[in-house]
Simulated scan of single mutants.
Amino acid sequence: MYATPALDAVDEKVLAEIEEMRRDLKYRLAEAHRWDGLLRRQLQARAIQGSNSIEGYHASVEDIESIMSGEDPLETSAAVAREIAGYRQALTYIGTLSQACAFHYDAGLLHALNFMMIGHHADKTPGTARPGGIYVRNSATGEVVYEGPDHEQVPGLLAELVEWLNEGDLDAPSYVRAAMAHFNLVAIHPWRDGNGRMSRALQTLVLGRDQITTPEFSSIEEWLGTGETTLEYYQALRMVQNGQWSPHRDTLSWVRFVLRCHHMQAQRVGRRLAEAGEVWLLLEERTGAQGLHPRTVSALYQVFVSRRLRRGMYQADEGLSQGQAARDLRELAAAGWLQPYGETKGRFYAPGPNMTEIKAAFAERARPLRDPYRALES
C-alpha cells in the first residue's frame, strides 16, 4: 500500500487550523437549534451532489433533497436518480456506522457499500471484486490515465487496506488517515464501477468513526465536486499514481491537497452555520410582525438555502397535514415570501420578493475563502 507521509511544519499549521475550526463547529452543534436538521440535510445533499457530479451524474441540490425525502425529482432523469438514491443509501449507512458502539472494518463492509451504491447495475457485478483488469480513461480524449493493479492482487490488497484501517498509523491525524484510506482504495480500484465514490465515502467514514463531527459536517465531497477543484482533484491523484499502481511513490502532495480541501470546506460550513442562526432569527422577526405562524420559518429557511421548496418536504419537516402545509404556503405566497410555480405534483415554491431581497443582502456580504497554504507561505 501507499505509505502515510510525514508532515512538514506548514502542514502541521494547516492541520492545527482545521482542528480548531472543527472543534468550534462541534461546540456550536452541541447546543440544539431549530435549523440544525435542515442544515444537515442540505450538507448531505451537497455532498451527494459533489461526489456524483465528479462521475458525470448531475442533479440539482433541490432534486437530491426530493429524492432523500422520498419524492420524485422535478428535473433529474430516472437513471441519474438511481445513482443519487444508491449513494444516499450508502452515506446514510455510513452515518449509522459512525455512531456504532461495536465496529470493525472488513472487506465485506466495503463490498456491501459498493453494492448499495451501484446495485442497480447488475451488469457491473456490484459488491464483488472485479474479475479482470481496469483502466481509467480521460473522458475528453479517451487516453488511459491509470491502470489498476492486476485483478489477482485485489483480494490481498483489500485485506492489507482493511488491516491498516483497523490497526495502521493510529497515531496519525484523522484527516491524514482518512486521506490515505481514500487514496489507497481508489488506487486499488477493486470494483468494476463506483471506485471513486466508494473512496470518497470511505474517507467520510474514517472521519466519522474518529468523531471529528457527524459525517455531514466533516465530509469534503461537496468541495471536491466544486468547479476547478474537480480538475485539481484528478491532478492530485495522477501526480502520485503516475499512471499505474506504484505504492513506493511519495503521497505528501496528495495529503496536502486533501488538507487544503478540509480547510476550505470547514470555512464554508462554519459560515453557513453562523448564517443559519442569523437568517432564522431575522425570518422569525419578519414573519412574526406579519402575524404568520412561527413554524413557517422552516419553509422560508429552506428557500433561503436553495432555489425552491415543495409542499411535501415542508409538510414532513413540520409534521403537518397536507391541508395545513398547503394553507401555510399559500399565506407565505400572498405575503410576498414565496412564488408558486407549476401544478399538482410538479408544483414548487421559489423565493418571492421578500426572500429575494434577503438572499441578495446576504450574498453581498460574502467574502472569498482563505487558501491556508497561500496564506502561510506569503
Rank of each mutant, 00 (worst) to 15 (best):
S139I: 06
E147L: 05
Q153D: 14
W164F: 09
V136K: 05
I134A: 15
G156D: 13
V162I: 15
V144G: 02
V162F: 12
I134Q: 03
P149Y: 03
P131W: 06
R137M: 00
V145Q: 06
V154M: 07
G148Q: 08
V162W: 09
E147A: 14
N166E: 10
P149Q: 04
I134W: 03
Y146N: 05
T141D: 08
V136H: 04
E143D: 12
G148L: 03
E152A: 12
T141C: 04
L161Q: 13
R137Q: 11
G133T: 02
H151Y: 13
V136I: 13
G142R: 03
Y135M: 07
G148D: 10
R130G: 07
G132C: 07
V145M: 01
V136S: 02
N138E: 04
E167R: 15
E143A: 14
R137E: 06
E167G: 03
G132D: 13
N138C: 01
P155C: 09
R130W: 09
T141N: 02
G156T: 13
G132M: 03
D150I: 02
G142W: 05
A140K: 12
V154S: 06
E152M: 14
A159D: 15
Y146D: 06
Q153W: 09
E147P: 00
E147V: 06
E160A: 15
E163K: 13
E160N: 08
T141V: 12
N138I: 00
V162P: 05
V136L: 11
V145L: 00
R130D: 03
V162A: 11
L158M: 15
V145N: 01
L165D: 11
A140N: 09
N138R: 06
G132W: 00
P131L: 12
G142C: 04
L161Y: 07
V144D: 05
L161C: 11
V144T: 11
N166T: 14
N166A: 08
V144L: 04
P149S: 07
E160P: 00
N166L: 09
E143F: 03
E143Y: 04
I134K: 01
Y135L: 12
G156R: 13
V162D: 11
E143P: 00
V136N: 05
L165G: 10
G156Y: 13
E160G: 13
G148C: 06
I134D: 00
A140G: 04
Y135V: 01
E152G: 14
L157F: 09
W164Y: 08
R137F: 02
I134M: 14
L161R: 12
V144Y: 01
P131C: 05
Y135R: 13
G142A: 06
V136Q: 01
